[in-house]
């Protein structure tokens, strides 16, 4: 059973809380540096686009935000599934923490998309399949946040949220493939798993930098939210009481 040890440790809120304490400053530093590097590179040093000119520079925020909004949904749904199968409370803590982060990233991809759409397409908003399915994603995230707040019983809230999260996973491949399956105003994907990117390398590298920055930023924020939620849920346990007493001694 020793190869399952990491899994059981991961299930311990206390172990998670103390283990991640030292990671936070490193993740913050690396994501901060990469965000600044990618932003300066994308805004000032990447060449303009032959068709869109400078408005395409919004891609350096729009694509990473949308990427993490989709991946964050899988993080939330898988955490919900692990919580359901193994009755692991840490998994539910991660699931709950992923919801507001995903909602914020989905909101960002919708807003940056709307602002980008105005000068290029000629409209802020169009009910096309990509944009509408992304709006549904926002409502899924908000629905899980609402479910978490609506139940008196923590257990019922966690199970209901996990169920909604799992049903909602259907939406992710729909968002991803919508631009290929239907006639949409939104263009097909620039970065694909199966073929070469359709963006010139001088514009691709800052984009990859920003995507990496958003990944690390996501890990940082997920850890921060999870740590706060652990303190809330474990408030009456001895280790949190000891921790609170330690904190009280600090100035």
């Amino acid at each position: 059973m020793s190869n399952w040890q990491w899994f059981h440790r991961l299930g311990s809120p206390r172990w998670f809380y103390y283990k991640t304490e030292g990671w936070v400053p490193w993740l913050a530093a690396v994501s901060g540096i990469l965000l600044v590097l990618g932003t300066v590179w994308g805004l000032a040093f990447a060449p303009p686009d032959y068709q869109q000119g400078n408005s395409y520079r919004i891609i350096y925020l729009h694509v990473p935000a949308a990427f993490l909004a989709l991946i964050g949904y899988y993080v939330m749904a898988v955490a919900g599934a692990v919580g359901m199968i193994w009755r692991m409370k840490m998994a539910f803590v991660v699931m709950k923490s992923a919801a507001p982060i995903g909602a914020a990233l989905t909101f960002l991809s919708l807003v940056t998309g709307a602002i980008w759409g105005k000068p290029t397409w000629g409209t802020w908003w169009e009910w096309d399949a990509r944009i509408t399915s992304m709006l549904i994603l926002l409502f899924l995230y908000l629905g899980i946040m609402a479910l978490q707040a609506a139940f008196q019983s923590r257990d019922a809230a966690d199970k209901a949220s996990a169920l909604l999260a799992l049903i909602g996973t259907v939406n992710i491949p729909i968002i991803y493939k919508s631009v290929d399956w239907w006639h949409t105003l939104h263009q097909p994907a620039t970065l694909k798993l199966t073929s070469a990117p359709t963006i010139h390398s001088s514009m691709l590298y800052p984009l990859l930098t920003m995507i990496l920055a958003f990944y690390i930023f996501y890990a940082l924020v997920l850890i921060l939210y999870t740590r706060a939620e652990i303190l809330r849920r474990e408030g009456r346990t001895q280790w949190v009481i000891d921790l609170v007493k330690e904190e009280a001694k600090k100035p």
């Binding site: 913050a28 932003t39 400078n54 520079r57 914020a104 960002l108 980008w116 000068p119 930023f217």
Partner: peptide
């Protein structure tokens, strides 16, 4: 070249949200 308001608005909103995400927890 005229796209400044759009581009800068996106960067402003995004960084405001990212800062909020770090500080709220």
């Amino acid at each position: 070249s005229g796209h400044g308001p759009f581009v800068w608005a996106c960067y402003g909103i995004t960084f405001a949200v990212l800062v909020y995400l770090v500080f709220s927890p």
